[in-house]
Design a protein around this nucleic acid. Structure first.
Length: 570
DNA sequence: TTGCACCCTG
DNA sequence: CAGGGTGCAA
């Protein structure tokens, strides 16, 4: 079976089968995986799986979904293009030190290629592991009918024949089940099938979560929301509430609120202990020892004040760290604490149920040939990827299912949309070289970040804050020198022993694990002298007296070393 | 009018 | 560090 997993297939096989929404294929594979891989399959589950299998084939024959997807994609492409144009126009107006960007799509393409290759490599390894364990534990079920679950689109005639056959079969099966009898009244069999499919999938996902929680994973209610069996979602993204949720207030007002706020409130109601203070926009990275030495203090970045537009940082999972960890140390190793993200939806949002999985689908398609999908992913992923984060999850169980789940999770979030503490650290170290980085420099040196306007301004703001601290220190020490009666500028030097340097180093290089370049000491000294002379000349009476200094200092930037370009630098 | 950088504040 | 206010330049 594992060979059929779409995530484990070569990219071409995945993308060429796109007659069917990828989310559906992925869900099917989840369903098959969890219903058959470890235990003999009960009859009713087998029947369910067969139905699902049939539904796939029916849907694969439907041209509607694809056409819809294509038009949607070109819309997004156009939007993206307009955005890029505006971005370029804006750049032309930036001050001198901000150069033009020529790279753009090529760069992104290259970035995506690299990420894809890395992910594919990891997935191949995972596949091997899967096969190993699978063969050990369940030899008699290996290579059985699951192989047929993969969608094979052969000739159109054949497909038609299959469709009519499986449609009939599926109809019979459904008639046999009293709990879906109402669906017979549906004017459109496909709609009914979709409902049944999503019910099966939700069922499956719910079982995954049950399994997860029974084997040591700690999931709070909101993390299970996307798997709620009470909600039946159509595979086209629409959904219906098929049951009631007693914990959620369901007034119109709540439904009209921005999703982030809505989620924040509901999550607060569920687990008030998690949110105790104003939260940083910096997304905490996972503490995945020994890959990262970041202290595993995980803050829940639920944004109380965030606007939907800012809701773009998504995930701290980074560069397949989780998967790598699993592959290196096995699923029994202790993961410590996984990062958390701000789940943005709850089950009171009737149109949200299918989104997390759609997001998997779209993001999984982020490949050089599918930048259109990428655009869709950025638009929707900003909101939906959050759902897949499992805050405060300890991985201590050895379930392959969990491994696979996190594999998908990680695959999904391979592209950074949020800035992590590592990015902040890197930015601080970059400050030793450049006080006024252009947006191009930022893009070049944060290749693992999916840039958008929000992220860019956040990074710019960081450097603005760095400068602020820097200049405050300079002014402070310059004034101190004057108070101390230093009469000659030459008597003021900045060395590694200087108090001034220690203050700066403490701020930008707290761990003191980075060798600060000499050039930074020189620039610091120049800045200190500038402040000294300006204050000595009583220029500080002019409200904008610092501007002259800024003008001098911004010319002293040097190039950031190439090593900083590697996303795994830290 | 818009975007940016700085300033101030929490 | 981030948000809001302000002034400046394009």
């Amino acid at each position: 079976y594992p060979l059929c997993c779409p995530l484990l297939q070569p990219r071409d096989e995945i993308t060429q089968n796109n007659a069917l929404p990828y989310c559906v294929r992925l869900r099917i594979h989840f369903f098959s995986l969890f219903s058959s891989s470890r235990h003999p399959v009960p009859d009713h589950l087998q029947a369910k799986r067969a139905r699902v299998e049939n539904i796939i084939r029916v849907m694969a024959g439907s041209p509607n979904s694809r056409q819809h997807g294509d038009s949607e994609r070109s819309d997004t492409d156009a939007r993206e293009a307009r955005e890029a144009y505006r971005e370029n126009k804006r750049k032309q107006r930036l001050p001198q030190h901000q150069e033009h960007s020529a790279a753009g799509p090529d760069e992104e393409c290259h970035k995506l290629k690299e990420q894809l290759h890395s992910m594919q490599r990891l997935l191949r390894q995972l596949q091997e592991k899967f096969l190993q364990v699978y063969n050990q534990e369940d030899p008699e079920h290996n290579g059985g009918d699951e192989a047929e679950v993969a969608v094979d689109v052969s000739t159109e005639d054949e497909l038609d024949r299959k469709n009519s056959r499986v449609t009939a079969e599926c109809g019979d099966r459904m008639k046999a089940q009293s709990n879906v009898s109402h669906q017979r009244e549906s004017p459109n069999l496909q709609e009914a099938l979709k409902k049944e499919l999503s019910r099966a999938v939700n069922d499956c996902v719910d079982r995954v979560f049950k399994k997860v929680s029974s084997t040591g994973l700690d999931l709070s209610p909101q993390q299970r929301m996307c798997s709620s069996p009470e909600v039946s979602a159509g595979a086209d993204g629409k959904s219906q509430r098929a049951g009631s949720t007693q914990e959620q207030p369901q007034d119109q007002e709540a439904a009209a609120k921005p999703r982030s706020l809505e989620y924040y409130e509901s999550s607060k109601a569920h687990s008030p202990q998690d949110q105790t203070e104003a939260l940083s926009l910096v997304v905490r990275k996972p503490a995945v020892a020994p890959l990262s030495s970041v202290t595993p203090t995980v803050k829940r970045p639920y944004p109380v004040h965030q606007t939907p537009f800012q809701f773009n940082y998504s995930t701290p999972l980074h560069d397949s760290q989780i998967l790598e960890h699993l592959l290196k140390y096995g699923p029994h190793s202790n993961f410590g604490v996984l990062p958390c993200m701000p789940p943005s939806m709850d089950r009171t949002s009737p149109d949200s149920v299918d989104l997390p999985w759609d997001t998997i689908a779209m993001r999984s398609k982020v490949t050089p040939g599918h930048l259109g999908h990428h655009a869709r992913a950025s638009a929707l992923g900003a909101v939906t990827v959050d759902n897949l984060c499992l805050p405060h999850v300890k991985i201590e169980c050895g379930e392959l299912q969990v491994l696979f789940f996190f594999c998908c999770l990680n695959f999904n979030v391979n592209i950074q949309e949020g800035l992590t503490p590592s990015h902040l650290k890197k930015a601080k170290l970059m400050f030793f070289y450049t006080r006024y980085p252009s947006s191009n420099v930022l893009k070049t040196f944060f290749p693992d970040v999916k840039f958008n306007r929000c992220i860019t301004s956040q990074l710019i703001k960081w450097f603005s804050n760095f400068r602020e601290f820097y200049y405050i220190q300079m002014e402070k020490f310059a004034r101190q020198a004057i108070v101390d009666g230093i009469s000659d500028v030459k008597d003021m030097t900045v060395s590694r022993d200087s108090e001034l340097f220690r203050a700066l180093n403490m701020h930008y290089n707290k761990a003191n694990d980075f060798h600060v370049p000499d050039r930074f000491l020189e620039v610091s000294e120049v800045t200190l002298h500038e402040f000294y002379t300006a204050i000595s000349a009583a220029k500080d009476s002019d409200p904008s007296w610092k501007k002259a200094i800024y003008k001098v200092i911004c010319k002293l930037d040097s190039d950031v070393p190439e090593e900083f370009k590697t996303s795994s630098y830290l």
